[in-house]
């Protein structure tokens, strides 16, 4: 683990040349201590975090509740001020408002003005970017269609369900076509279908060349989309690296085969034993619940009204 941290740290020598142009986010020794009214230390929410996020990657911040994921994102955005260390975005200090021109942010819950409707909401956020009226109108329509809220665009947000609010929240984060998207628990409150759409969208953003930083405690979501992850616990960085590398179990071999007979299975067991291996499991694989649910929904969309015949 130690060497992995070192690899990401800015001090690392062989990272330097390419990092200069490609580094989107850089934190140096970033720490945050929450204090109470009298200035007494309450919680050390983040301890000396060194991170580097490069252009075009999907970076996941992973950890249980209260591990410092949201604190990190808020420090990056300038919503919180670091106790020590610094956070640089596009090479600028996180307190610099100018950096926001190139950033999109979807907060933990979509904190939006409930008295506005979808069009007014997006129009308002578009104005904050000084977008000309015609560009703004086009962009608003485009985004509403993209998040699938055309049918409800004139309804006040207070009538929206949680999933719909989440979608409009995502739309506002993309209003300025940002280069860097920060997503705080992007899939919270979404149904499985919405979750999948969100994940597809995150991948699409990456394909468009944007950098995505997301934090989540839903491991499956992170596993599905992230290129690299950092695992935080109690404010400390515990693990950092590429998802595929981290998840590869080096001393385990998995064999998957179709249409094997009982005899063939016995034969394989024998081979493993002969080579001194230890058979851990041999069984019919299960799919993930997410896969199952999505299959049922897709099936039901094709043949409405019938109870699913999916076996599983």
């Amino acid at each position: 683990m130690a060497d992995q941290v070192a690899e990401a740290a800015p001090s690392s020598a062989d990272d330097k040349p390419q990092a200069e142009s490609d580094v989107v986010i850089e934190t140096r020794n970033l720490s945050k201590v929450y204090r109470d009214f009298w200035g007494r230390q309450k919680v050390q929410a983040l301890k000396a975090l060194d991170l580097e996020v490069r252009k075009g990657e999907i970076f996941g911040l992973l950890g249980p509740n209260g591990s410092g994921k949201s604190t990190t994102i808020k420090l990056l955005l300038g919503l919180l001020f670091p106790t020590s260390g610094e956070a640089l975005i596009f090479g600028r200090d996180s307190s610099d408002v100018g950096k926001n021109e190139r950033i999109g942010y979807l907060p933990e819950e979509s904190y939006l003005y409930k008295f506005l409707n979808a069009v007014e909401t997006l129009d308002f956020y578009g104005r904050l970017f000084d977008m000309p009226a015609d560009v703004r109108a086009d962009r608003v329509n485009e985004l509403i269609t993209m998040v699938g809220l055309d049918w409800a665009k004139r309804r006040q947000l207070k009538e929206y369900s949680k999933g719909m609010t989440r979608r409009i929240g995502l739309a506002q984060a993309l209003i300025n076509d940002p280069e860097l998207v920060l997503l705080d628990e992007p899939t919270s409150g979404l149904d499985p279908l919405g979750t999948r759409e969100m994940k597809d969208l995150i991948l699409r953003l990456r394909d468009e060349g944007k950098t995505v930083v997301m934090c989540s405690h839903l491991l499956a979501d992170v596993q599905d989309v992230c290129d690299r992850i950092a695992i935080l616990h109690q404010g400390e960085l515990k693990e950092l690296g590429r998802v595929d590398t981290l998840l590869t179990v080096k001393d385990m071999t998995q064999v998957r085969a179709e249409s094997l007979t009982k005899e063939a299975e016995e034969e394989i067991r024998a081979v493993i034993e002969k080579h001194g291996g230890n058979l851990v499991a041999m069984e019919n694989p299960t799919t993930t619940l997410e896969e199952l649910f999505l299959n049922i929904v897709r099936d039901s969309d094709e043949k409405p009204g019938r109870r699913s015949t999916q076996d599983g």
């Binding site: 100018g98 942010y105 907060p107 979509s110 300025n176």
Partner: peptide, 14 residues
């Protein structure tokens, strides 16, 4: 309190 300000101050608003 409602944190609606989060979505505003993370835009280029002074």
């Amino acid at each position: 309190k409602n944190r609606t300000i989060y979505t505003v101050v993370t835009k280029p608003v002074r």
